[in-house]
């Protein structure tokens, strides 16, 4: 069962994503800030990371760089309330960019396709 790490400082969103991802058949773990997220990447070997951008402390863009420094094959989905980050080239290195929506369908679909892709590549 693939493990998905959710990094977001909004507890309600973490809960929503957890619920939906589990329902879709994934194992989940959550981190409430970027530092904790990086720690879990090192220690818990997730198969995919969902990363919020605007967070207190280290932001998602910096966290993304650090994750890629460790393992650039690990798929990362940037998930944010801001569509404007799409213009920031620093976000281009992420595997996907999904704007936050109450319809979690797009996020789940993206997770699914990235994991499948990874499976094929490996």
């Amino acid at each position: 069962m693939a493990k998905v790490l959710i990094v977001d400082d909004e507890p309600n969103l973490r809960l929503l994503y957890e619920t939906e991802l589990r329902r879709a058949g994934y194992e989940t773990m959550t981190a409430s800030n970027a530092e904790q997220g990086l720690e879990y990447v090192d220690t818990m070997a997730p198969d995919l990371v969902i990363l919020d951008i605007r967070m207190a402390g280290m932001d998602g863009i910096e966290a993304l760089q650090r994750i890629l420094d460790r393992d650039n094959t690990l798929p990362v989905i940037l998930n944010t309330a801001y569509s404007s980050y799409r213009e920031n080239f620093m976000t281009w290195s992420a595997d996907a960019y999904v704007t936050k929506s109450s319809d979690v369908g797009e996020l789940i679909d993206t997770v699914k396709s990235l994991l499948q892709q990874r499976l094929v590549e490996n």
């Binding site: 929503l16 605007r54 801001y82």
Partner: peptide, 21 residues
Amino acid sequence: SAIVAHELRNPLVSIGGFARS
């Protein structure tokens, strides 16, 4: 709108997301 995005979009995602559930 930058503020609106952050301050409204996040709660709306939770509200709508759980309502869907």
